[in-house]
Protein backbone atom coordinates (compact mmCIF):
# COMPACT_ATOMS: atom_id res chain seq x y z
CA UNK A 1 0.00 0.00 0.00
CA UNK A 2 1.38 3.42 -0.97
CA UNK A 3 1.86 5.72 1.99
CA UNK A 4 1.63 9.52 2.17
CA UNK A 5 1.83 12.07 4.95
CA UNK A 6 -1.47 13.55 3.84
CA UNK A 7 -4.32 12.41 1.60
CA UNK A 8 -6.66 15.14 0.40
CA UNK A 9 -10.09 14.09 -0.83
CA UNK A 10 -11.26 16.41 -3.61
CA UNK A 11 -9.38 18.52 -6.18
CA UNK A 12 -11.44 21.69 -6.21
CA UNK A 13 -10.24 25.07 -4.94
CA UNK A 14 -10.07 23.98 -1.27
CA UNK A 15 -8.33 20.66 -1.93
CA UNK A 16 -5.78 22.01 -4.41
CA UNK A 17 -4.95 25.03 -2.24
CA UNK A 18 -4.40 22.69 0.70
CA UNK A 19 -2.19 20.53 -1.54
CA UNK A 20 -0.04 23.56 -2.45
CA UNK A 21 0.46 24.47 1.20
CA UNK A 22 1.11 20.90 2.38
CA UNK A 23 3.60 20.27 -0.45
CA UNK A 24 5.39 23.54 0.27
CA UNK A 25 5.74 22.43 3.90
CA UNK A 26 7.72 19.45 2.62
CA UNK A 27 5.10 16.77 3.27
CA UNK A 28 4.15 14.07 0.80
CA UNK A 29 0.60 14.59 -0.42
CA UNK A 30 -1.86 12.72 -2.62
CA UNK A 31 -5.04 14.35 -3.90
CA UNK A 32 -7.85 11.96 -4.84
CA UNK A 33 -10.51 13.18 -7.26
CA UNK A 34 -13.54 11.18 -8.36
CA UNK A 35 -14.34 13.13 -11.53
CA UNK A 36 -12.08 15.95 -12.72
CA UNK A 37 -9.91 18.50 -10.96
CA UNK A 38 -11.41 21.97 -10.72
CA UNK A 39 -14.60 21.42 -8.75
CA UNK A 40 -17.84 23.36 -9.05
CA UNK A 41 -16.22 26.57 -10.30
CA UNK A 42 -15.37 25.08 -13.71
CA UNK A 43 -19.02 25.64 -14.64
CA UNK A 44 -18.40 29.39 -14.42
CA UNK A 45 -17.07 31.10 -17.53
CA UNK A 46 -16.59 34.56 -16.07
CA UNK A 47 -15.34 34.85 -12.49
CA UNK A 48 -15.14 38.49 -11.46
CA UNK A 49 -14.57 38.20 -7.71
CA UNK A 50 -11.29 36.33 -7.61
CA UNK A 51 -8.78 38.93 -6.35
CA UNK A 52 -6.07 39.71 -8.86
CA UNK A 53 -8.02 38.81 -11.98
CA UNK A 54 -10.55 41.24 -13.46
CA UNK A 55 -12.09 38.29 -15.21
CA UNK A 56 -11.03 34.68 -15.44
CA UNK A 57 -12.78 31.45 -16.43
CA UNK A 58 -13.12 28.69 -13.86
CA UNK A 59 -11.37 26.24 -16.17
CA UNK A 60 -8.33 28.50 -16.71
CA UNK A 61 -8.02 29.35 -13.02
CA UNK A 62 -8.32 25.76 -11.84
CA UNK A 63 -5.94 24.40 -14.45
CA UNK A 64 -3.32 26.92 -13.28
CA UNK A 65 -3.80 25.90 -9.66
CA UNK A 66 -3.70 22.22 -10.60
CA UNK A 67 -0.35 22.67 -12.39
CA UNK A 68 0.98 24.71 -9.49
CA UNK A 69 0.14 21.93 -7.01
CA UNK A 70 1.62 19.38 -9.38
CA UNK A 71 4.87 21.31 -9.86
CA UNK A 72 5.26 21.51 -6.10
CA UNK A 73 5.13 17.73 -5.87
CA UNK A 74 1.51 17.04 -4.99
CA UNK A 75 0.28 13.88 -6.72
CA UNK A 76 -3.24 13.71 -8.15
CA UNK A 77 -5.07 10.47 -8.87
CA UNK A 78 -8.49 10.27 -10.48
CA UNK A 79 -10.12 7.67 -8.27
CA UNK A 80 -13.31 7.80 -6.28
CA UNK A 81 -12.97 7.47 -2.53
CA UNK A 82 -15.36 4.85 -1.20
CA UNK A 83 -14.23 4.51 2.41
CA UNK A 84 -11.90 6.11 4.96
CA UNK A 85 -11.03 4.33 8.18
CA UNK A 86 -8.48 4.41 10.99
CA UNK A 87 -5.44 2.27 10.41
CA UNK A 88 -5.32 0.02 13.46
CA UNK A 89 -1.81 -0.10 14.74
CA UNK A 90 -0.11 3.00 13.42
CA UNK A 91 -2.60 5.73 14.32
CA UNK A 92 -2.98 6.82 10.71
CA UNK A 93 -5.70 6.23 8.17
CA UNK A 94 -6.53 4.02 5.20
CA UNK A 95 -8.27 5.65 2.26
CA UNK A 96 -9.97 3.18 -0.08
CA UNK A 97 -10.87 4.14 -3.63
CA UNK A 98 -12.63 2.23 -6.40
CA UNK A 99 -9.16 1.13 -7.58
CA UNK A 100 -6.62 1.25 -4.73
CA UNK A 101 -5.90 1.64 -1.04
CA UNK A 102 -3.65 4.34 0.37
CA UNK A 103 -2.21 4.79 3.84
CA UNK A 104 -1.66 8.23 5.32
CA UNK A 105 -1.02 9.97 8.62
CA UNK A 106 -3.68 12.66 8.19
CA UNK A 107 -6.64 13.44 5.95
CA UNK A 108 -8.12 16.66 4.57
CA UNK A 109 -11.71 16.38 3.37
CA UNK A 110 -12.47 18.81 0.54
CA UNK A 111 -15.30 17.00 -1.18
CA UNK A 112 -17.44 20.02 -2.02
CA UNK A 113 -21.10 19.94 -2.93
CA UNK A 114 -23.20 18.66 -5.82
CA UNK A 115 -26.57 19.70 -7.23
CA UNK A 116 -29.54 18.29 -5.34
CA UNK A 117 -31.07 15.67 -7.63
CA UNK A 118 -34.62 15.68 -8.90
CA UNK A 119 -37.05 13.76 -6.66
CA UNK A 120 -37.89 10.20 -7.73
CA UNK A 121 -41.44 11.26 -8.50
CA UNK A 122 -40.36 14.10 -10.78
CA UNK A 123 -37.63 12.01 -12.38
CA UNK A 124 -40.23 9.36 -13.22
CA UNK A 125 -42.45 12.12 -14.56
CA UNK A 126 -39.60 13.37 -16.77
CA UNK A 127 -39.29 9.88 -18.25
CA UNK A 128 -36.75 9.76 -21.06
CA UNK A 129 -36.52 13.55 -21.36
CA UNK A 130 -33.06 14.97 -20.65
CA UNK A 131 -32.43 16.33 -17.16
CA UNK A 132 -29.86 19.11 -16.85
CA UNK A 133 -28.28 20.70 -13.80
CA UNK A 134 -26.65 23.52 -15.76
CA UNK A 135 -28.69 25.82 -17.99
CA UNK A 136 -25.64 27.69 -19.31
CA UNK A 137 -24.10 24.33 -20.30
CA UNK A 138 -27.07 22.77 -22.03
CA UNK A 139 -29.58 25.56 -22.74
CA UNK A 140 -28.51 26.12 -26.34
CA UNK A 141 -29.33 22.51 -27.19
CA UNK A 142 -33.01 23.44 -26.78
CA UNK A 143 -33.10 26.52 -29.00
CA UNK A 144 -36.69 27.36 -29.88
CA UNK A 145 -38.07 24.46 -27.83
CA UNK A 146 -40.22 24.41 -24.68
CA UNK A 147 -38.40 23.50 -21.46
CA UNK A 148 -39.09 23.58 -17.73
CA UNK A 149 -37.09 24.89 -14.78
CA UNK A 150 -37.59 23.20 -11.40
CA UNK A 151 -36.81 25.24 -8.30
CA UNK A 152 -37.74 28.38 -6.42
CA UNK A 153 -34.44 29.96 -5.35
CA UNK A 154 -32.19 32.56 -6.90
CA UNK A 155 -30.40 30.02 -9.08
CA UNK A 156 -33.70 28.87 -10.57
CA UNK A 157 -34.64 32.50 -11.38
CA UNK A 158 -31.23 33.06 -12.94
CA UNK A 159 -31.53 29.89 -15.06
CA UNK A 160 -35.02 30.88 -16.20
CA UNK A 161 -33.83 34.30 -17.32
CA UNK A 162 -31.01 32.70 -19.26
CA UNK A 163 -33.26 30.10 -20.92
CA UNK A 164 -35.95 32.66 -21.82
CA UNK A 165 -33.46 34.16 -24.26
CA UNK A 166 -33.08 30.81 -26.04
CA UNK A 167 -36.15 28.60 -25.65
CA UNK A 168 -39.65 29.07 -27.08
CA UNK A 169 -41.29 28.61 -23.69
CA UNK A 170 -39.84 28.29 -20.20
CA UNK A 171 -42.20 26.69 -17.70
CA UNK A 172 -41.47 27.21 -14.02
CA UNK A 173 -42.43 24.65 -11.39
CA UNK A 174 -41.55 23.82 -7.81
CA UNK A 175 -39.94 20.66 -6.49
CA UNK A 176 -43.20 18.78 -6.05
CA UNK A 177 -45.15 19.88 -9.14
CA UNK A 178 -45.80 17.66 -12.17
CA UNK A 179 -43.50 18.12 -15.19
CA UNK A 180 -45.37 19.86 -18.07
CA UNK A 181 -46.10 17.49 -20.93
CA UNK A 182 -44.66 19.72 -23.67
CA UNK A 183 -41.30 20.41 -21.97
CA UNK A 184 -38.51 18.78 -23.97
CA UNK A 185 -35.88 19.11 -21.25
CA UNK A 186 -35.92 19.56 -17.49
CA UNK A 187 -33.54 22.06 -15.91
CA UNK A 188 -33.09 21.49 -12.20
CA UNK A 189 -32.04 24.18 -9.71
CA UNK A 190 -33.16 23.04 -6.28
CA UNK A 191 -30.03 23.79 -4.32
CA UNK A 192 -26.88 21.86 -3.53
CA UNK A 193 -26.00 19.08 -1.11
CA UNK A 194 -22.59 18.19 0.37
CA UNK A 195 -20.66 15.24 -1.07
CA UNK A 196 -20.30 13.52 2.27
CA UNK A 197 -22.09 10.18 1.94
CA UNK A 198 -18.95 8.11 2.50
CA UNK A 199 -18.04 10.21 5.57
CA UNK A 200 -21.26 9.51 7.49
CA UNK A 201 -19.77 7.10 10.06
CA UNK A 202 -16.31 8.65 10.04
CA UNK A 203 -16.76 12.27 11.16
CA UNK A 204 -19.62 14.26 12.64
CA UNK A 205 -22.02 15.71 10.05
CA UNK A 206 -24.81 18.23 10.65
CA UNK A 207 -28.43 17.44 9.76
CA UNK A 208 -27.87 18.56 6.16
CA UNK A 209 -24.76 16.41 5.77
CA UNK A 210 -22.07 19.11 6.08
CA UNK A 211 -18.91 18.18 8.00
CA UNK A 212 -19.08 19.88 11.40
CA UNK A 213 -16.03 22.10 12.00
CA UNK A 214 -15.27 25.68 12.97
CA UNK A 215 -12.93 28.11 11.24
CA UNK A 216 -10.00 25.98 12.48
CA UNK A 217 -11.14 23.28 10.01
CA UNK A 218 -10.80 20.51 12.64
CA UNK A 219 -13.40 17.73 12.41
CA UNK A 220 -14.69 15.54 15.23
CA UNK A 221 -11.84 13.08 14.56
CA UNK A 222 -8.23 13.83 15.44
CA UNK A 223 -6.01 13.89 12.35
CA UNK A 224 -8.93 14.63 10.01
CA UNK A 225 -9.50 18.14 8.72
CA UNK A 226 -12.08 19.68 6.39
CA UNK A 227 -11.88 22.51 3.87
CA UNK A 228 -14.24 24.29 1.52
CA UNK A 229 -17.92 24.00 0.69
CA UNK A 230 -18.51 20.66 2.46
CA UNK A 231 -17.78 22.30 5.85
CA UNK A 232 -20.42 23.95 8.07
CA UNK A 233 -19.87 27.65 7.32
CA UNK A 234 -21.67 30.85 6.39
CA UNK A 235 -19.97 31.88 3.14
CA UNK A 236 -19.26 29.39 0.36
CA UNK A 237 -17.09 31.38 -2.02
CA UNK A 238 -14.01 30.66 -4.06
CA UNK A 239 -11.79 32.73 -1.76
CA UNK A 240 -13.18 31.18 1.40
CA UNK A 241 -12.53 27.72 -0.07
CA UNK A 242 -8.93 28.74 -0.73
CA UNK A 243 -8.74 30.19 2.79
CA UNK A 244 -9.98 26.91 4.27
CA UNK A 245 -7.37 25.05 2.23
CA UNK A 246 -4.59 27.10 3.80
CA UNK A 247 -6.01 26.74 7.31
CA UNK A 248 -6.53 22.98 7.01
CA UNK A 249 -3.00 22.56 5.59
CA UNK A 250 -1.52 24.57 8.46
CA UNK A 251 -3.45 22.44 10.96
CA UNK A 252 -2.27 19.22 9.27
CA UNK A 253 1.37 20.29 9.36
CA UNK A 254 1.00 21.15 13.05
CA UNK A 255 -0.67 17.76 13.69
CA UNK A 256 2.15 15.89 11.96
CA UNK A 257 4.84 17.46 14.18
Amino acid sequence: MKKYDVVIVGAGMAGLTAAIYVARAGKSVLVLEGTMHGGQIINTIKIQNWPGDFEVSGADLMNKIYHQANNLGAEVEYEEVVKISENRGDGGFVVETNENEYACRAVILATGTEPRRLSEKQAADAGSRPISYCATCDGALYKGKPVVVVGSGNTAKHEMKYLEGICSKVHHIHHDDPIPADAEAVFVAIGRVPNTKVLKDFVELDKDGYVVAGEDCKTSRSGVFVAGDCRTKSARQLVTAAGDGAIAAGAVVEYLK
Binding site: I42, I45, S57, A59, M62, N63, C134, C137
Partner: peptide
Amino acid sequence: YADWCGPCQMMKPV
Protein backbone atom coordinates in the same frame (compact mmCIF):
# COMPACT_ATOMS: atom_id res chain seq x y z
CA TYR B 1 -18.59 21.38 -27.25
CA ALA B 2 -19.56 25.06 -27.18
CA ASP B 3 -17.56 28.18 -26.43
CA TRP B 4 -19.89 29.26 -23.64
CA CYS B 5 -19.67 25.93 -21.80
CA GLY B 6 -17.26 25.99 -18.83
CA PRO B 7 -16.77 22.23 -18.48
CA CYS B 8 -15.99 22.10 -22.23
CA GLN B 9 -13.12 24.52 -21.63
CA MET B 10 -11.88 22.13 -18.99
CA MET B 11 -11.94 19.26 -21.50
CA LYS B 12 -9.94 21.17 -24.12
CA PRO B 13 -6.44 20.49 -22.69
CA VAL B 14 -7.43 16.88 -21.95
